[in-house]
């Protein structure tokens, strides 16, 4: 549980297009790291390279090393399916499986891993929904479709689904961008609770959110039009938002730069 991530000199490509240039950064266990930066700067791309989701896009590839507690997830012998089982992901738009009930959604990952024991599944279902602060709202309708919940509830359902498999790391790709402020607050509180158990990396466009939830913030930027995105700086969140060492970071967080 809660492993450390070391990204070492990672370059990411879509076909011939060089999307992200040489990123090196470490994420300590049981902490929240936020990726911020303008659109198209490659922060989501970097996030998706951490569980090998990037390569699902045809033509996409990653060079460099991503170490999970010292083990390279891009080593030739590593099965990407196994990587994704230990590194959970929550997406920008809530994506519960529409044909599944709430319960089946939560335990979908376990079922994929071969768990069939009904009692165990029910246990995990309750624990995960409680973990995602959703249990009280849905405990009476676990057999109803997940798609019938509100957007914020769906996103918490997706978080429950991701934590049900007890991943080492939880990746969140703008998890609140499709939610209203109250649901956003609920998710942010949840993130603060979840970091007791998980290593969390979150991409966000909302700088207040980064400031509220994260311990460490990484600022990404584009070197220029058509240039690859790069990591400008990474530091304690407090320092990034009060006294960043790079001028570009200061310009961005103070709103002088789009």
């Amino acid at each position: 549980m809660a492993k450390r991530i070391d990204i070492k000199d990672v370059n990411i490509y879509y076909g011939k297009f060089h999307a992200v240039d040489s990123v090196t950064l470490s994420v300590p266990p049981r902490s929240v790291t936020a990726f911020i930066g303008p659109s198209g700067c490659g922060k989501s791309t970097v996030l998706r390279s951490l569980n090998r989701m990037h390569e699902v896009t045809p033509g996409a590839r990653v060079e460099g090393r991503v170490l999970l507690d010292g083990e390279d997830i891009y080593a030739p012998s590593v099965d990407p399916v196994e990587v994704r089982r230990t590194i959970g992901m929550v997406f920008q738009r809530p994506n519960p499986f529409p044909t599944m009930s709430i319960r089946d959604n939560v335990v979908a990952g376990l079922k994929l891993a071969g768990v069939r024991n009904r009692k165990k599944l029910d246990e995990v279902c309750e624990r995960s929904l409680r973990g995602a602060n959703l249990w009280e709202e849905v405990k009476d309708r676990l057999d109803r479709p997940g798609g019938g919940l509100s957007g914020g509830q769906q996103q918490r359902l997706c978080i429950a689904r991701a934590i049900a498999v007890q991943p080492d790391v939880l990746l969140m790709d703008e998890p609140c961008s499709a939610l209203d402020p109250i649901s956003t607050l609920a998710i942010e509180d949840l993130i603060t609770e979840l970091k007791q158990d998980f290593t969390i990396v979150i991409v966000t466009h909302n700088m207040q959110q980064a400031a509220r939830v994260s311990d460490q913030t990484a600022f990404f930027n584009l070197a220029g039009v058509g240039q690859p995105g790069r990591l400008v700086e990474v530091d304690d969140t407090e320092k990034i938002f009060s006294n960043p060492s790079q001028k570009a970071t200061e310009d961005y967080i103070s709103g002088r730069f789009g």
């Binding site: 989701m53 994506n95 529409p98 991701a162």
Partner: peptide, 19 residues
């Protein structure tokens, strides 16, 4: 997003198609 949701949960290609 459904396809990626399944893959991110550690589904193999066939499991992704099935779910």
């Amino acid at each position: 997003e459904h396809i990626e949701g399944a893959l991110a949960l550690g589904a193999t290609k066939w499991e992704m198609l099935r779910t």
